[in-house]
Design a protein around this nucleic acid. Structure first.
Lengths: 202, 202
DNA sequence: TTTATATTTGACCAGTTGGTCAAAGTGAGG
DNA sequence: CCTCACTTTGACCAACTGGTCAAATATAAA
């Protein structure tokens, strides 16, 4: 089925995806041009189109790769683990991703803000399924009195929003914090927030 | 200095701004076209350019108007009031703004994600000043033991992110919640989160 | 070396976009 | 009714954009 990829194919495809990520995440889909991406990838435009048939194809390939790494960590939350630690760890992982892969986060944010024209169906399908399952786990923890009462869906939203904020709104964060490092305080704050929110009262 | 505006000028300028807001917030600056905006405003393209000299001018006018309504509520936080209530009320106000003016929120988000090319200086100037003052007030509350210890800057970030999330990521929120109304649960969750975070322990 | 295949490129194109301009139309005060 | 400033428009343009294509070049296997 899959034709064997040559060395050159591998190199160029990953160069194009890296360039596409950089450009798309900064300028959005419409603001990005094939010339800019090709230049960033170190290829001529026709040569780039030899590997990806269109601008859309590059964008879709990026989103597909992104969605995988987006959904995967959620499934690692262990229903049998300590609830507060599981959720705090998930939040910390998301924050680390915002720190190390801010362009991925911005690419995703751009897509969602503009109405998710490409991945709307995935959101309403896979994503919803995964989050429904997680919500069920969290509800179980609440029922067992292992965390304070909480709406599981909005809890997830608040974890996503607080962590992704540091990637998507990086410019604003840095404008306000000046020289101070955002991530140091961010991790402590978010952990604090979740612990005080969730830890059952004695 | 200011020439008196005619009835027609008022009507057309506000029509253009309304149309620009709608289009820019959905497609981003680059993805928006003058034709689309003019069409939405019910004017011909040259006629629209008679009132705003360029695409950039419309965008800048929108951002200027937006920044005002963005900064103003922060200054309403009363250092003499009850700390928890003041902060909870601010968060509720931001959430209400996300609910009633989602396009403004998305316009702002688009601008920030793309590196704030137009309003970077305002962020590092006015915004930072205002937030520095707020941070000072919050620090005072912490010192007085009226709220639990908290990093004031990251507290503000978390309020912004959690509330704006419901406007900027509306599509994702609705994809997950399905028919359920987002805002009902959102307000209660955010209020809960802040109260548990801030209310001093007895 | 030969050969078949994979890769790269310059020239090109049609559609779109932001913006211009001269000319025509409109409205309110005299 | 007249006038003069304000408003509106159709025709137009240069720059840019996504994408094509035939020809040239590099590569790997035989």
């Amino acid at each position: 089925m899959n034709k064997p990829e040559t060395r050159i194919q591998k190199k160029n495809q990953s160069a194009i995806l890296a360039a596409g990520l950089k450009v798309f995440s900064q300028y959005g889909f419409h603001g990005s041009t094939l010339d800019k991406i090709a230049d960033e990838a170190g290829l001529s435009k026709p040569n780039m189109l030899y590997y990806f048939s269109s601008k859309d194809a590059i964008y879709k390939a990026l989103l597909a790769r992104l969605l995988e790494s987006w959904l995967e960590p959620v499934t690692h939350i262990d229903p049998a683990g300590d609830p507060v630690e599981e959720l705090v760890n998930y939040a910390k992982l998301k924050l680390t991703m915002s720190q190390h892969y801010p362009n991925e986060s911005r690419l995703f944010a751009n897509e969602i803000i503009q109405g998710a024209p490409q991945i709307g169906d995935v959101l309403r399908g896979e994503l919803r399924t995964v989050i429904d399952q997680l919500a069920h786990v969290i509800d179980g923890w609440v029922s067992a009195g292992r965390i304070q009462p909480v709406d599981p869906y909005h809890l997830v939203f608040s974890i996503w929003s607080m962590t992704q904020h540091y990637a998507d709104f990086d410019v604003q964060v840095r404008a306000i914090l000046g020289d101070r490092d955002p991530m140091a305080g961010a991790e402590m704050h978010i952990e604090n927030m979740l612990r005080r929110m969730l830890t059952p009262e004695p």
